[in-house]
Design a protein around this nucleic acid. Structure first.
Length: 226
DNA sequence: AACCAGGACGTGA
DNA sequence: TCACGTCATGGT
């Protein structure tokens, strides 16, 4: 079985740093490429810089559940336009207003409730880094969302397993398609250096490569397998 | 015009 | 534990 670190380095060489987690509402820096897509901060791992950005990641992680990121962006922009992109405002705002704002991201009835829950949670921990079980106890936060929040909002070394990871590495014969979330997570964490940047970058690279090679309407060929 | 997207929850075996 | 139905908008 091929070395995961070699696959990581191949992907990094092909695609370059991905700049995850995208933060739509941050100041552009000198390091931003002129035409780089807003949000992605390629090669800059100094995020998040404050609790507002931390909450933007939490909100994005919930909103992107089984949903295209382009739809999440619309919802995040609506939230920002209504001054709702912070935990306190989300907690206090009217539920119907919240639903209206996040409508483009789909599942808005349940996601509005989930956003309220995660907002209350963020306020309750007062900026300290939460434990994994703690976040998992929030309704609407499952294993992938919890790991995304820990890895990207709190810079904790928790590997994120999503549908792309499962699909791509099933094709690469690392495990079968009915492997459990935690089994897959352990495979990655046991075979990679416990490095937050590697975890962050690898997950983002997997998403990019899987979009190109392992999603619908895309033929799998020899270049898919690195 | 189906099909799918950076899942999670509730339910009943 | 586990398989299955449900949730919803927007792009292809």
């Amino acid at each position: 079985m091929k070395d995961l670190l070699k696959i990581y380095n191949s992907l990094l060489k092909i695609y370059g740093p991905q700049g995850w987690w995208p933060l739509l509402f941050r100041k552009r820096t000198k390091r931003d490429k002129e035409n780089s897509f807003i949000g992605y901060h390629c090669g800059d791992y100094s995020y998040p810089k404050n609790n507002q950005q931390r909450f933007e990641i939490c909100a994005g992680a919930v909103l992107t559940q089984n949903t295209a990121w382009t739809n999440v962006e619309k919802a995040l922009i609506n939230l920002n336009n209504n001054d709702l992109l912070n935990a306190k405002a989300v907690k206090e705002t009217d539920l119907q207003e919240l639903k209206k704002a996040i409508m483009p991201a789909g599942y808005y009835n349940q996601k509005a409730i989930y956003l309220k829950k995660i907002a209350e949670f963020c306020l309750s921990i007062k900026g300290r880094t939460p434990a994994r079980e703690e976040i998992l106890s929030v309704k609407g936060v499952g294993p992938e969302t919890a790991d995304s929040i820990l890895l990207y909002a709190y810079n904790q070394p928790e590997f994120v397993v999503d549908a792309y990871t499962r699909r791509m590495f099933t094709h690469l014969n690392f495990f079968n398609k009915n492997a459990k979330y935690n089994e897959i997570k352990e495979i990655f964490e046991n075979r990679l250096p416990k490095d937050v940047i590697v975890y962050q970058e690898f997950h983002a690279l997997i998403v990019q490569h899987a979009k190109n090679h392992f999603s619908r309407k895309v033929k799998i060929n020899e270049s898919s397998f690195l």
